[in-house]
Design a protein around this nucleic acid. Structure first.
Lengths: 377, 377
DNA sequence: CTGAAAGCGCTAACAG
DNA sequence: CTGTTAGCGCTTTCAG
C-alpha cells in the first residue's frame, strides 16, 4: 500500500462521524490572494487596472448599460490580464439570484430517474444554471426536508418528482416562496408552473390491448407501482380501462400492488404463481419489477412467453438484452428531463404566465416476452 | 387533453431554443415581501422586532460570540414569530463560502455512478451541504468546462471522477483555486486532497485466479475499459498479472479494448467469437459490457458457462438476475460515494493536512456464469 | 454583554 | 458616456 494510503475501515471509524461541521459552522478560509490573479481578483482591481470606476467596469463586462467601445476594450484587457472571474457571490446578493435549480428525485439509482436527471442537467447547463441534486430515497419526509432546504438556499427554480402525492405543505411552501416549480413523472394537481408526465394511461392501454387482442390472453395480471403516486394510479387505471375496452373485466386476484422495487416485483409474481388458476400474461408497471418477475419465472421453470407472457410499461437499458427480450413501452430516456428543464427555463427566462402541462406519448416495442417474433428493436 | 396541456412536439419547437437567457442575463425578480414573513424577512427585521442590534441578533442565531441567555431568547422568539430564515446569500458573500460541493461524473446513467452520487449526496446532506451535479457524458472537454464553471461558482469543494487521465490543466486549476478536490474511481496522481478507488488490480486477479485455478481455463480473454482512465489501466494490469501468477501468459488476440459501453462489449465479444481458436472464458472489465457480451453469446447460441464461461469485474443491479447469474466482484454500491463524501467533509471541516487515499477491497461473488453451482448471492 | 460601523463583490439609480 | 453613491443581508472587529 503506498504512503498516505489507508484502509477504508479506518476511515469509516475516523473520518465519518455522523455529523461533521457544516458550512455555516466552519471558520472562513481566507483567500490567499497569492499571485494577484485568478479567483481573488475583484472588480475593483480590474477597474483600477483599467483606470475606470467599478461601475464602468461592471458595464463593460456585463454588456448592460451604455459604454464607449474604447473604454470597454480597456476594461476587457484588464480582465484578461488579471484573469478576473466575476464572483457570483456578490452578484447573487445584489440580484437575488443564485443560478441554481434544485432537482429532487426519489431514487437516482433508478435508471429512469438517472436518465431524467441527465436530461435536466444538460438542458440547464446550456443556459448557465447549476443543478443542486437531492435524492430522497422515496421518503416523503426527506423530500419535504429537501425542498425546504433548497428554498432556504434560494434556488431560482425547482424540478421535482414527488414520491407520494404531495400534501398541502408542498403547495403552501411553493406558493409562499414564489419559486417556480416544475413537476415531472408525478404531477401535483394545481401546483407549480408546469409538469412533464408520461402518457401512463394510454400507454398501459396499448400494452393490455396488445396482449388481449393480438395474443388472445384472457387471464391478464397486473403488478403495479405505488398508488401514492400519480403514475401508479394512472397506470392502474390504464390497465383496468384497457381490459374493459377489450371486453374483459379485471379480476381482483390478478391485480397486485408492488412499490416499484425489484423485491416487490418478485414477491407479487410469486403470489400470482401461487394462485389456483394463474394468469397467462403479466403486465408490470415498471422495468425493475418486470426484470425481477422474469427472474422468478426462470427460477420456477416457467417458460416465457409460452407458459406466461410478459410485458412492462417501462423499459430500461437492458430490457432488450434479457432472455427473452422484454416487450415494453419505450421512450427516449432523457427526453422527460430535457422537457422538464425546458419548462423551468421558460419560466426563469420569461416569467411567463400560465402553467404548462406536457404528456409524453409512449410507443410499443414488440419483443419476444409477449409472444411476438421480436421485430422491433 | 385537459386545458393548459400541450403536445410535447410543440414544446420542442417553442420552448426549447438552443440557448435561453441565463441567470446573469435575467432581470432580477423583486421580492414581493407579501405578508412580511418567510423569505424576505431580513436579520434587521428580526433585530428590530426583538429590540436589539442586528449584530446581537446574528450572535443569538449563529450561537457564536457572547450573548445573554435572556437576550438570546428574545431574539429567537422574534425569529419564530417572523419565520425568519437567514439568507445564505449575505452569509456566502461575507464568509466566502457557498455550502456547495461540486460533483462531476462521466455518466450518471451508469448505475455505478448513480449509486456513487447517491452516496455522496446523502453524506454531504447530513452536514448541510448541497451537491451541484454535472454529468460530462465522458467527454474531457465537458469535464474541463464543468470544473471550471464549478470553480467560478465558488463551490467549497469538488468530488470528481475524471474520464481521461487528467492533464496538467486540472492539476493547475485545482491548485490555483485552492479548492479541495477528492477523486473517486479514477485517481489523478499527485492532485487533490484525497481519493477513493476500487482495488482494481487485486479484484481482477481474484477473478482470473478463480477461472484458471478453480475451473481450469487456459484460454482466458479480456474485454477491457478505456486505458485513458486509471481504472481501465489497473484492471488490465490485474488481468495480466493474474494470468502470469497462474502460470499462463497473456495472448494478444485475447485482450480486447472496449470503452465501458454495452455496444463495445458486444463488439469485442463478437471479435473474440470470430477467432479461429477462441477463448473458453471471458473476463469483462465492467458489468455493462458483460451484460452485452452475454447477450451476444445467447444470440450466437453459445451456452454459458459450458461453451464459454463469463465473469465481470463490476456488478450491477441485475447481475444476479441474469441467466445464468453473473459471477462478478461485488461491493456495497453507495460505499464509494459515501467515502468520497466523508473525505471531502473531513477537509472542509478541519482543513486537515495530508492527502488521504482509500482503496475499497472487492469480494468475489461466485454465481453460475463461471461454472460454479451458484452458492453466493 | 451589546451596539455602531465596516465591508464581503457586485449592480443600478442618479447625477454629471 | 462615466463616476459617485447606495445598498443586497450577513458577520465581525472594535468600542463602550
Amino acid at each position: 500500500m503506498e504512503p498516505g494510503a489507508i484502509d477504508y475501515r479506518d476511515l469509516c471509524m475516523s473520518a465519518a462521524p455522523s455529523r461533521l461541521a457544516g458550512p455555516a459552522e466552519r471558520a472562513s478560509r481566507r483567500r490567499s490572494a497569492a499571485s494577484g490573479s485568478g479567483p481573488g481578483v475583484t472588480l475593483a482591481d480590474v477597474a483600477r487596472e483599467a483606470g475606470v470606476s467599478s461601475a464602468t467596469a461592471s458595464r463593460a463586462i456585463s454588456g448592460r448599460g451604455p459604454i464607449a467601445a474604447q473604454t470597454r476594450a480597456r476594461v476587457l484587457a484588464a480582465v484578461a490580464k488579471l484573469e478576473f472571474e466575476p464572483s457570483p457571490l456578490g452578484r447573487s446578493l445584489r440580484m437575488q439570484t443564485t443560478g441554481l435549480v434544485g432537482v429532487v428525485v426519489p431514487d437516482i439509482a433508478d435508471p429512469f430517474y438517472a436518465a431524467a436527471v441527465k436530461g435536466i442537467q444538460h438542458r440547464l447547463e446550456a443556459s448557465g444554471y447549476h443543478v443542486a441534486l437531492v435524492d430522497t430515497d422515496e421518503r416523503v419526509d426527506r423530500e419535504t426536508a429537501a425542498i425546504r432546504s433548497l428554498l432556504v438556499a434560494r434556488v431560482d427554480g425547482l424540478v421535482v418528482c414527488t414520491s407520494g402525492i404531495a400534501g398541502s405543505w408542498l403547495a403552501d411552501a411553493v406558493r409562499r416562496s414564489r419559486t417556480p416549480v416544475v413537476f415531472f413523472d408525478n404531477a401535483v394537481a394545481g401546483v407549480g408552473v408546469g409538469s412533464v408526465t408520461l402518457a401512463n394511461e394510454d400507454g398501459m392501454r396499448l400494452l393490455v390491448d396488445h396482449l388481449v387482442v393480438a395474443h388472445g390472453h384472457r387471464r391478464v395480471a397486473y403488478v403495479g407501482g405505488r398508488l401514492s403516486e400519480t403514475s401508479g394510479v394512472e397506470r392502474l387505471e390504464g390497465f383496468r380501462i384497457g381490459l374493459l375496452a377489450a371486453g374483459l373485466s379485471p379480476v381482483d386476484a390478478y391485480v397486485r400492488m408492488g412499490d416499484w422495487t425489484p423485491a416487490s416485483g418478485a414477491r407479487e409474481t410469486e403470489a400470482l404463481l401461487a394462485l389456483d388458476e394463474g394468469p397467462t400474461a403479466i403486465v408490470y408497471a415498471n422495468a425493475r419489477m418486470a426484470f425481477a418477475g422474469l427472474h422468478v419465472l426462470h427460477e420456477r421453470g416457467v417458460r416465457v412467453p409460452d407458459g406466461i407472457a410478459l410485458a412492462s410499461f417501462d423499459d430500461a437499458e437492458g430490457g432488450a438484452l434479457l432472455d427473452p427480450p422484454l416487450t415494453a413501452l419505450v421512450r427516449r430516456d432523457q427526453q422527460i428531463g430535457d422537457l422538464a428543464g425546458s419548462l423551468i427555463l421558460r419560466v426563469l427566462a420569461y416569467a411567463e404566465a400560465g402553467p404548462m402541462h406536457v404528456r409524453i406519448p409512449m410507443e410499443l416495442a414488440l419483443r419476444r416476452s409477449c409472444g411476438c417474433a421480436g421485430v422491433t428493436a
